[in-house]
Amino acid sequence: MSSHRKSLIVVRRLLQAGPVIVLATLIVFALLKLVPGDVAVTLAGDNASDARIAEIRHLYGLDRPFIVQYAAWLWRAAHGDLSASLISREPVLISILRCFPHTLLIVALALAMAITVGIPLGVAAAARAGARIDGAVMTVASLGVAVPNFWLGMLLVTLFALDLNWLPATGAVALGESVRGAFIHAFLPACALAAGGIAEVTRQLRASLVEILSSPQVRTLHMKGLSPAKIMWRHGLKNVSVNLLTVIGLLFNRMLAATVVVEAVFAIPGMGSLIVNAAIHRDFPVVQGVVFAMVMVVVLLNLATDILYTVLDPRIA
C-alpha cells in the first residue's frame, strides 16, 4: 500500500518536471528575442557579408513565426544538434562536451568538500549550541557566505601558487590525461568554490539540528537516559538528513553558477569560460547551448533529489 502511494508521488514529480523542462527551454530560446534590432544583422557583427546574414537568418528560421522557430530549435536540440559557433564554426555540442568535464570536476570536488567539512562543523556547533565553539564556527560560516569566491580564489593563487609555489596557478588537465594532474589543478578552484558551500551546509545543518534537539521528544530521550551521542546520531542526524539532501541539491545549482567566475580566475577552459567568451563576442548559439546544457543538468538533478527524497523519507507513505 505505502509503496504504491510512493510510486504515485514519484510519477507526479516526473509529470511536473515535464512542463518545467519545456518552460526552461522556452526561456532559453526566448533569449533570442532580446537581441536588439534585426537579429541576423546584429549577430553577424560589423562588416558582415550578405551571405553571412542570410545564413544566420536561415539558422534560426527568422522569417517564420516564433513558435515554429522554437519548435524547430527544440527538435534539433533534443537530438543533440545545438547548431555551431558563429565564430569558430565548431558544433556547440562538441564544445560543451569538451568543457563540461572540467566544470563538473571542480563542482563535484567542491561539493565533496562542502559535505565532508560542513557536516562535522554543523554537528559540532549544534551539539554545543550557545557555547564558544558554536560562536566561533558560526562566525567563520557567516564570513564564508559573504566572501566573493573569485576573490578568495585570487587570494589562494597568490598564497599557494605565486608565493609558496605548491600548486599550479592556472590551467586544467583532463581526467583522461592524468588523474593526478587533474586533481592538482582542480584543488585550488574547488577550495575557492567550496567556502560558500561549507558555510551553507554548516548553517543549515546547525539550524535544523538545534530545532530537533530542543523538541519535546528529544527532551524525553534525555530523561530516559540515552547518551547525547546516541541522540545526535539516531534522532538528530537521521531526522535532518532529508533536509540536508535538499540543501545539497540547491548547493549544486549555486556552485554551477559560481564556478563561472572562479574558472575565469584560474583560466580553466570550462563552461564558464565558454559562455563568457561567447557573450563578449555575441556568439549566440554557444550562449544558448551552454545555458541549455546547464539548465538541463540542474532540472534533472533536482528531479533526482526530489525522487530520492520521496523514497528515503518514511513520513511520505
Binding site: V276, I280, V287, V291, M294
Partner: peptide, 13 residues
C-alpha cells in the same frame, strides 16, 4: 532552475 549568473551572462550576450 537557472544558475543566476549564467542567465545574467546570457542576457548580456
Amino acid at each position: 532552475s537557472f544558475p543566476a549568473i549564467v542567465l545574467a551572462i546570457a542576457v548580456t550576450g
